[in-house]
Nucleic acid binder design. Structure first.
Lengths: 245, 245
DNA sequence: TCGTGATCTTGATCTAGGTCAATAAATATT
DNA sequence: AATATTTATTGACCTAGATCAAGATCACGA
């Protein structure tokens, strides 16, 4: 929960890039079935730096990814240069699996910061799954989790107002990244205000204003991209506030 | 594509309730693996009438459903009586699968009209999957399709304006239901204006107004709940119109 | 058939949040 | 260090769509 030492791997990378152990990863059991070693030093990890893409929307489905450290955004683009960021992803989270049926990725994935990523070849998966039935069971698990997450985002986009969206977003972030940070209520945003806006369906300026408001009210402390949550109670209250009665 | 005769099953039910054949169902291959007969007269189908619920949000995961006829809405509820309809579902579509990991449904499902629904016991699935590995592969397929659909809805809710949303919605509906209707560009809405609004993140009144506008412009013909698309070109153009440049 | 409640429609307002614009910080580049 | 570029902030304004209100129409049960 609190600060704890993590095995260093590549001294050239910033502290934030220290990867999680396989045991902490959501694809843990999946990789184990694949026969990948789970000692925490997976050999097929690659480094992506800010802006580098793991895959593009429409690309042929060739790898399933697992994030070991850092963060990645996934986005869907449509006509008219409009882009929706469908999710931010952190260490331990799987990526790309939803391309399974169509055999092409429905969204693009791009690193938000220097990130360590495991790549699993889908052909390898198919091959091994023939003899290891539970391989697919793990994929069903990961995908069903994803659908329920997406439904929560749909709920947020369809029903919540700006401040509620942002409060919900911050709480979600703190749950996902603060546990790995040095101080559990404090963490660093790896994405810009514009990217937060594009994820929550709001303008960049609105994100700024509401963050400023939360800061001024003492609910959070905001310094550049560092957020500290001072009053989780109040933040939670904002999420499910006015019933619009 | 056009009108075609369908095997009648239960003469007491309205015409709209004539079920599809298993061969036309998205869960086709899944059921076949389960050893369910694929002659089109699955015995475990049940009838749900308007307003009856297949499952509630939070219910324990006990069945996977396949819609044979009619239509169902799925919805997520949060605090403050706000409800988001996450999807409308029609004949051939699977339902409930996303509860797999959490072992409870993340949304509620309720029939919009008299509907025939196949229920598959999840214990049976687990049991059989032990000896039939590809069982799970089918589930992966269905779930991955679902994730990509949800991502499209997220894109719509996050980036599109009211008229674009509705145009997109109508096109989607026509693709999914008109193929089974007597006239491919004409179909009946099984959901209320309010429900469409709750799905698209808009007020009931806005749905009315925009439908009226589309009708007046000749793009569609609207009579109560019957929609005929007169100008698919124009409708498509609306979806990806102003780049908000 | 009539009545009752749900659904739909349309108009009149109001407002949350988008858009535009003008700095200010921070970062990257030379 | 100096300049350029990206990112963040803040104010002024405006508009798409929500909300409120009042009927109209429909579906359905007695």
């Amino acid at each position: 929960m609190t600060a704890r030492p993590l095995a260093e791997e590549n001294p050239a990378l910033p502290k934030a890039c220290i990867p999680i152990l396989c045991a902490e990863c959501g694809m843990d059991r999946f990789c184990a079935l694949l026969g990948l070693d789970g000692t925490g030093t997976a050999k097929r990890a690659e480094i992506y730096r800010r802006g580098q893409v793991l895959f593009r929307q429409g690309d042929t489905f060739d790898y399933i990814y697992a994030l070991r450290s850092g963060s990645v955004k996934t986005s869907v683009s449509g006509k008219g240069r409009r882009v929706q960021i469908t999710g931010f992803h952190f260490a331990g989270e799987p990526l790309g699996l939803s391309a399974y049926a169509k055999k092409q990725y429905g969204c693009a994935a791009e690193a938000l910061e220097t990130s360590s990523v495991c790549k699993v070849d889908v052909n390898r998966v198919e091959e091994i799954a023939r003899t290891v039935p539970s391989m697919y069971a793990e994929m069903v698990t990961m995908l069903s989790v994803r659908v329920q997450q997406d439904e929560q985002l749909i709920f947020l986009l369809g029903t919540r107002r700006a401040e509620e969206r942002l409060a919900d977003f911050l709480i979600g972030l703190s749950r996902r990244v603060a546990s790995r940070a040095y101080f559990p209520t404090q963490f660093r945003l790896s994405m810009s205000r514009r990217e937060i806006g594009s994820h929550l369906g709001m303008a960049e300026e609105t994100i700024c204003r509401i963050l400023a408001r939360l800061h001024d009210s003492g609910c959070i402390t905001l310094t550049r991209r560092t957020v500290r949550i001072n009053d989780m109670e109040r933040l939670s209250a904002i999420v499910s506030s006015a019933p619009v009665d």
